[in-house]
């Protein structure tokens, strides 16, 4: 009964109310954002982050993960630090000096043997990785690889290959650029990573996969599916608003997340997403790119069933919301 009493009335304009409830404190956030202009931020919070979420960007500006370590290891800081170090992606450019020789049209890779022994990487491993990109011929010395591009030898291609080699991933987990150890409230440690790679981290043997967190919603959708994306979208929205001390009911965030994920993929709010896919021609034309929508509708002989709010306002009828929803079943 209690849940029944709290349920929303039929015809309640939940969308508008959610929009107003998030939008009104949002105006305050705008003012504060400009107020804080110039203060360095590690991760976008507040309005920039909110916009990022609502726009459903392909990748957040600063992707990050929180990695929780299995209990027996998580209590010891050195062990966690060791795991964290193992996660960090090592690129070829940090192990070797890569030089282009445009005269002889070759690339010379001189591996720093001291560094690789510290990192416990063998020359063979590196060689194997490089071979995936290009064929390697041994240089004069043991630690020097020479690459002679065969197919195209234009300077541009050499430069392109060099850049690829520089960012060649050798060890650790791809896209994880750096790690940080954070002490939890219960005395255990967790790892905060810069860069996100959910699939690889979750496979790591010492990681509690179900507790792993990333702020990259699109990646969650790819790895764990749209339901997980929906939940984390809700959490992120609520968290952004809470951080600014804006008291917005979580159900508004839930509705927003539901609307963004309702057809199985993440849609943004705006022209390229939700508003651009509204059912009615008039509603779409009223939003943005009026002429485009009208002409497309004409080409496809579209019919507007006048089911939305906007359409009915345009033609001057009662809107199907609240008191406009109820109809007389029988005329006496």
């Amino acid at each position: 009964m209690a849940s029944k009493a709290r349920s929303v009335d039929p015809g309640e304009a939940v969308g508008i109310i959610a929009a107003q409830s998030i939008g009104e404190p949002g105006t305050q956030m705008t003012m504060r954002t400009f107020h804080y202009a110039g203060v360095a931020e590690q991760v976008p919070t507040g309005l920039p982050r909110l916009i990022e979420l609502v726009d459903a960007r392909k990748e957040p500006k600063k992707p990050l993960m929180d990695v929780y370590i299995k209990e027996e290891l998580s209590k010891s800081e050195p062990k966690v630090r060791e795991i964290a170090h193992g996660l960090e992606s090592t690129l070829l450019s940090s192990l070797a000096t890569i030089e282009e020789d445009f005269a002889q049209k070759l690339i010379r890779i001189a591996i720093d043997e001291k560094t690789i022994s510290e990192e416990q990487i063998s020359l063979d491993d590196i060689k194997k990785k490089i071979q995936k990109l290009a064929s390697v011929s041994e240089g004069e010395e043991k630690n020097v690889f020479v690459i002679k591009p065969t197919k195209t030898t234009s300077l541009r291609n050499i430069r392109r290959l060099t850049n690829k080699l520089r960012s060649l991933h050798i060890k650790g987990i791809e896209r994880i650029s750096r790690t940080m150890i954070i002490r939890n409230a219960d005395g255990t440690y967790r790892i905060r990573t810069g860069g996100s790679n959910l699939a690889a981290i979750m496979k790591h043997p010492s990681v509690i996969s179900e507790k792993t967190y990333t702020n990259d919603i699109q990646e969650i959708e790819r790895v764990l599916g749209v339901e997980a994306a929906r939940q984390s979208l809700t959490n992120e929205l609520k968290q952004v608003l809470d951080m600014q001390n804006l008291n917005v009911d979580i159900r508004h965030c839930m509705l927003l997340a539901d609307a963004m994920t309702m057809d199985g993929k993440i849609k943004s709010i705006g022209r390229h997403g939700l508003s651009g896919e509204k059912a009615g021609v008039l509603a779409r034309a009223a939003f943005e790119e009026t002429i485009k929508h009208l002409i497309n509708a004409a080409v496809h002989a579209e019919e507007d069933r006048l089911i939305g709010v906007t359409e009915n306002i345009i033609i001057g009828q009662t809107v199907p919301v609240g008191t406009g929803l109820v109809k007389l079943k029988m005329k006496m």
Binding site: G11, E12, A13, I16, I17, Q20, V309, I313, T318, V319, P320, V321, G322, T323, G324, L325
Partner: peptide, 9 residues
């Protein structure tokens, strides 16, 4: 709209 006051609107 948020109020559901369709007739007034």
């Amino acid at each position: 709209i948020g109020y559901g006051a369709s007739m007034l609107l």
